[in-house]
Protein backbone atom coordinates (compact mmCIF):
# COMPACT_ATOMS: atom_id res chain seq x y z
CA UNK A 1 0.00 0.00 0.00
CA UNK A 2 1.25 3.45 -0.94
CA UNK A 3 -0.39 6.61 0.37
CA UNK A 4 0.95 10.17 0.40
CA UNK A 5 -1.06 13.17 1.50
CA UNK A 6 -0.42 16.90 1.12
CA UNK A 7 -2.67 19.51 2.75
CA UNK A 8 -2.39 21.79 -0.22
CA UNK A 9 -2.82 20.59 -3.80
CA UNK A 10 -1.11 23.81 -4.89
CA UNK A 11 2.31 22.34 -4.07
CA UNK A 12 1.77 19.28 -6.27
CA UNK A 13 0.40 21.47 -9.07
CA UNK A 14 3.55 23.62 -8.93
CA UNK A 15 5.79 20.54 -8.98
CA UNK A 16 4.03 19.24 -12.06
CA UNK A 17 4.26 22.62 -13.80
CA UNK A 18 8.00 22.55 -13.11
CA UNK A 19 8.55 19.26 -14.97
CA UNK A 20 5.89 18.89 -17.62
CA UNK A 21 7.46 21.18 -20.18
CA UNK A 22 10.61 19.03 -20.27
CA UNK A 23 9.07 15.60 -19.83
CA UNK A 24 6.10 13.89 -21.46
CA UNK A 25 6.12 11.05 -18.98
CA UNK A 26 8.10 10.16 -15.90
CA UNK A 27 8.64 7.42 -13.36
CA UNK A 28 7.95 8.34 -9.74
CA UNK A 29 10.02 6.07 -7.51
CA UNK A 30 8.29 5.73 -4.16
CA UNK A 31 10.04 4.31 -1.11
CA UNK A 32 10.10 4.70 2.64
CA UNK A 33 12.21 7.84 2.32
CA UNK A 34 9.90 9.61 -0.12
CA UNK A 35 9.20 10.13 -3.80
CA UNK A 36 11.97 10.57 -6.36
CA UNK A 37 11.95 11.28 -10.03
CA UNK A 38 14.92 11.36 -12.36
CA UNK A 39 14.41 11.79 -16.07
CA UNK A 40 16.13 13.25 -19.09
CA UNK A 41 14.32 15.36 -21.65
CA UNK A 42 13.80 13.82 -25.09
CA UNK A 43 17.03 15.22 -26.50
CA UNK A 44 19.10 13.97 -23.51
CA UNK A 45 20.57 17.41 -22.99
CA UNK A 46 18.92 18.19 -19.66
CA UNK A 47 17.88 16.13 -16.68
CA UNK A 48 15.27 16.71 -14.00
CA UNK A 49 15.84 15.36 -10.52
CA UNK A 50 13.02 15.74 -8.02
CA UNK A 51 13.04 14.67 -4.38
CA UNK A 52 9.99 14.87 -2.11
CA UNK A 53 10.90 13.61 1.36
CA UNK A 54 8.41 11.43 3.19
CA UNK A 55 8.62 13.61 6.33
CA UNK A 56 7.42 16.60 4.29
CA UNK A 57 4.06 14.96 3.62
CA UNK A 58 1.18 15.30 6.05
CA UNK A 59 0.75 11.56 5.87
CA UNK A 60 3.07 9.10 4.17
CA UNK A 61 2.96 5.34 3.98
CA UNK A 62 4.93 3.10 1.64
CA UNK A 63 4.93 -0.57 2.61
CA UNK A 64 6.84 -1.66 -0.47
CA UNK A 65 8.93 0.36 -2.88
CA UNK A 66 7.14 0.96 -6.15
CA UNK A 67 7.70 2.80 -9.39
CA UNK A 68 4.79 4.65 -10.91
CA UNK A 69 5.17 5.59 -14.56
CA UNK A 70 2.87 8.49 -15.31
CA UNK A 71 1.86 10.41 -18.37
CA UNK A 72 2.34 13.99 -17.21
CA UNK A 73 -0.27 15.49 -19.52
CA UNK A 74 -2.86 13.12 -18.02
CA UNK A 75 -1.65 13.91 -14.50
CA UNK A 76 -1.96 17.59 -15.31
CA UNK A 77 -5.59 17.13 -16.44
CA UNK A 78 -6.35 15.47 -13.12
CA UNK A 79 -4.59 18.06 -10.97
CA UNK A 80 -6.47 20.86 -12.73
CA UNK A 81 -9.59 19.33 -11.15
CA UNK A 82 -8.25 20.14 -7.66
CA UNK A 83 -8.58 23.48 -5.96
CA UNK A 84 -5.34 24.91 -4.65
CA UNK A 85 -6.40 24.52 -1.02
CA UNK A 86 -7.76 21.00 -1.43
CA UNK A 87 -6.01 18.21 0.39
CA UNK A 88 -4.56 15.75 -2.11
CA UNK A 89 -3.86 12.09 -1.43
CA UNK A 90 -1.98 9.86 -3.89
CA UNK A 91 -2.82 6.19 -3.44
CA UNK A 92 -1.75 2.94 -5.04
CA UNK A 93 -1.94 -0.71 -4.11
CA UNK A 94 1.23 -2.83 -4.23
CA UNK A 95 1.82 -4.03 -7.79
CA UNK A 96 -1.06 -1.88 -9.01
CA UNK A 97 -1.40 -0.71 -12.59
CA UNK A 98 -3.33 2.39 -11.55
CA UNK A 99 -2.84 5.32 -9.20
CA UNK A 100 -5.64 7.27 -7.53
CA UNK A 101 -5.69 10.96 -6.70
CA UNK A 102 -8.19 11.95 -4.02
CA UNK A 103 -9.06 15.62 -3.53
CA UNK A 104 -10.84 16.80 -0.39
CA UNK A 105 -12.11 20.32 0.11
CA UNK A 106 -11.22 22.11 3.34
CA UNK A 107 -14.61 21.52 4.94
CA UNK A 108 -14.76 17.97 3.61
CA UNK A 109 -18.06 18.63 1.85
CA UNK A 110 -16.60 17.63 -1.51
CA UNK A 111 -14.47 14.58 -2.13
CA UNK A 112 -13.42 13.53 -5.61
CA UNK A 113 -11.19 10.74 -6.83
CA UNK A 114 -9.47 10.25 -10.15
CA UNK A 115 -7.91 6.97 -11.16
CA UNK A 116 -5.16 6.99 -13.74
CA UNK A 117 -3.54 4.11 -15.60
CA UNK A 118 0.15 3.69 -14.92
CA UNK A 119 2.71 3.19 -17.68
CA UNK A 120 5.70 0.92 -17.94
CA UNK A 121 8.54 3.28 -18.67
CA UNK A 122 11.97 2.03 -19.48
CA UNK A 123 13.90 4.96 -18.12
CA UNK A 124 17.65 4.93 -17.76
CA UNK A 125 18.97 6.33 -14.52
CA UNK A 126 22.16 8.33 -14.58
CA UNK A 127 24.73 8.30 -11.83
CA UNK A 128 25.39 11.91 -10.93
CA UNK A 129 28.77 12.35 -9.23
CA UNK A 130 29.23 14.71 -6.28
CA UNK A 131 30.99 17.77 -7.64
CA UNK A 132 32.81 20.64 -5.96
CA UNK A 133 31.65 23.53 -8.07
CA UNK A 134 33.87 26.46 -9.01
CA UNK A 135 30.99 28.92 -8.64
CA UNK A 136 27.73 28.75 -6.70
CA UNK A 137 25.36 31.66 -7.27
CA UNK A 138 22.26 32.24 -5.15
CA UNK A 139 19.71 34.81 -6.26
CA UNK A 140 15.98 35.55 -6.21
CA UNK A 141 14.22 33.03 -8.46
CA UNK A 142 12.03 35.76 -9.97
CA UNK A 143 15.15 37.72 -10.97
CA UNK A 144 16.66 34.70 -12.69
CA UNK A 145 13.41 34.02 -14.56
CA UNK A 146 13.27 37.65 -15.67
CA UNK A 147 16.85 37.66 -16.96
CA UNK A 148 16.42 34.42 -18.88
CA UNK A 149 13.13 35.56 -20.42
CA UNK A 150 14.53 38.96 -21.38
CA UNK A 151 17.73 37.65 -22.94
CA UNK A 152 16.12 34.72 -24.78
CA UNK A 153 14.50 37.24 -27.08
CA UNK A 154 17.87 38.12 -28.57
CA UNK A 155 19.60 34.80 -29.07
CA UNK A 156 19.51 31.07 -28.58
CA UNK A 157 22.55 30.80 -26.34
CA UNK A 158 23.34 32.59 -23.10
CA UNK A 159 26.88 32.93 -21.85
CA UNK A 160 27.10 32.97 -18.05
CA UNK A 161 30.33 34.44 -16.65
CA UNK A 162 30.87 34.33 -12.93
CA UNK A 163 33.62 36.12 -11.04
CA UNK A 164 33.83 37.12 -7.40
CA UNK A 165 32.48 40.58 -8.26
CA UNK A 166 29.33 39.26 -9.81
CA UNK A 167 27.68 37.29 -12.55
CA UNK A 168 27.12 38.38 -16.14
CA UNK A 169 24.57 36.92 -18.53
CA UNK A 170 25.24 37.67 -22.22
CA UNK A 171 23.40 36.92 -25.43
CA UNK A 172 24.05 37.90 -29.01
CA UNK A 173 22.03 37.36 -32.15
CA UNK A 174 20.70 38.95 -35.33
CA UNK A 175 19.32 42.01 -33.55
CA UNK A 176 22.48 42.74 -31.60
CA UNK A 177 23.65 41.82 -28.15
CA UNK A 178 22.50 42.08 -24.55
CA UNK A 179 24.26 41.84 -21.19
CA UNK A 180 22.87 41.70 -17.69
CA UNK A 181 25.33 42.08 -14.82
CA UNK A 182 24.37 41.27 -11.27
CA UNK A 183 26.69 42.39 -8.49
CA UNK A 184 27.02 40.42 -5.31
CA UNK A 185 24.95 42.17 -2.63
CA UNK A 186 25.58 42.52 1.06
CA UNK A 187 21.91 42.86 1.81
CA UNK A 188 21.92 41.01 5.11
CA UNK A 189 18.55 42.24 6.33
CA UNK A 190 16.82 41.20 3.09
CA UNK A 191 18.38 37.82 2.52
CA UNK A 192 15.62 36.78 0.12
CA UNK A 193 16.55 39.59 -2.26
CA UNK A 194 20.31 39.13 -2.10
CA UNK A 195 22.69 37.84 -4.75
CA UNK A 196 25.49 35.79 -3.26
CA UNK A 197 28.44 34.15 -4.96
CA UNK A 198 30.77 31.49 -3.62
CA UNK A 199 33.70 31.31 -6.01
CA UNK A 200 36.77 29.05 -6.11
CA UNK A 201 37.67 30.14 -9.62
CA UNK A 202 35.93 32.15 -12.35
CA UNK A 203 33.77 30.23 -14.83
CA UNK A 204 32.32 31.08 -18.26
CA UNK A 205 29.87 28.64 -19.81
CA UNK A 206 27.27 28.77 -22.59
CA UNK A 207 23.80 27.24 -22.39
CA UNK A 208 20.71 26.98 -24.55
CA UNK A 209 18.15 29.62 -23.48
CA UNK A 210 15.25 27.35 -24.34
CA UNK A 211 16.15 24.95 -21.50
CA UNK A 212 16.77 27.68 -18.95
CA UNK A 213 13.30 29.01 -19.71
CA UNK A 214 11.85 25.56 -19.04
CA UNK A 215 13.69 25.40 -15.71
CA UNK A 216 12.19 28.70 -14.59
CA UNK A 217 8.75 27.06 -14.60
CA UNK A 218 9.83 26.00 -11.08
CA UNK A 219 9.93 29.64 -9.92
CA UNK A 220 6.62 29.43 -7.98
CA UNK A 221 8.13 26.65 -5.85
CA UNK A 222 10.82 28.80 -4.26
CA UNK A 223 11.78 32.46 -3.73
CA UNK A 224 15.45 31.52 -4.30
CA UNK A 225 17.38 29.69 -6.99
CA UNK A 226 20.91 28.30 -6.87
CA UNK A 227 23.12 28.00 -9.94
CA UNK A 228 26.20 25.78 -9.63
CA UNK A 229 28.87 25.84 -12.33
CA UNK A 230 32.25 24.35 -13.10
CA UNK A 231 34.12 24.34 -16.39
CA UNK A 232 32.91 21.66 -18.76
CA UNK A 233 30.39 20.02 -16.44
CA UNK A 234 26.61 20.46 -16.51
CA UNK A 235 25.05 23.48 -14.88
CA UNK A 236 22.86 22.67 -11.88
CA UNK A 237 19.82 24.89 -11.32
CA UNK A 238 18.24 24.11 -7.96
CA UNK A 239 14.97 25.19 -6.38
CA UNK A 240 14.27 24.19 -2.82
CA UNK A 241 10.72 23.11 -2.05
CA UNK A 242 10.12 24.31 1.50
CA UNK A 243 10.00 21.48 4.07
CA UNK A 244 9.47 18.92 1.32
CA UNK A 245 12.53 18.58 -0.87
CA UNK A 246 14.01 20.08 -4.01
CA UNK A 247 14.00 20.07 -7.78
CA UNK A 248 17.32 20.15 -9.63
CA UNK A 249 17.85 20.63 -13.32
CA UNK A 250 21.10 19.62 -15.00
CA UNK A 251 21.99 21.15 -18.33
CA UNK A 252 24.95 20.14 -20.48
CA UNK A 253 27.04 23.12 -21.56
CA UNK A 254 27.45 24.07 -25.20
CA UNK A 255 30.70 22.75 -26.61
CA UNK A 256 33.41 25.31 -27.26
CA UNK A 257 33.87 26.03 -30.94
Amino acid sequence: MFEARLTSAATLKKVLEAVKELLNEASFDCSDSGIQLQAMDNSHVSLVSLTLRSDGFDKYRCDRSLTMGMNLASMSKILKCANNDDTVTIKAQDDADTVTFVFESKKQEKISDYEMKLMNLDQEHLGIPETDFSCVIRMPSVEFARIVRDLAQFGETVLICCTKEGVKFSVSGDVGSANVKLAQTNNFDKEEESVSIEMQEPVSLSFACQYLISFTKATPLSPRVQLSMSSNVPLVVEYEIAELGYIRYYLAPKIED
Binding site: S43, V45, S46, H125, L126, P129, P234, K254, D257
Partner: peptide, 14 residues
Amino acid sequence: VGNQTTLMKFFTKA
Protein backbone atom coordinates in the same frame (compact mmCIF):
# COMPACT_ATOMS: atom_id res chain seq x y z
CA VAL B 1 20.14 21.88 -30.34
CA GLY B 2 23.11 23.10 -32.32
CA ASN B 3 26.48 22.26 -30.83
CA GLN B 4 24.87 21.11 -27.61
CA THR B 5 26.48 18.08 -26.06
CA THR B 6 24.49 15.46 -24.15
CA LEU B 7 24.48 14.64 -20.46
CA MET B 8 25.69 11.11 -21.19
CA LYS B 9 29.15 12.56 -21.69
CA PHE B 10 29.24 13.69 -18.06
CA PHE B 11 27.18 11.19 -16.11
CA THR B 12 27.52 7.45 -15.94
CA LYS B 13 24.57 5.12 -16.16
CA ALA B 14 23.58 4.13 -12.65
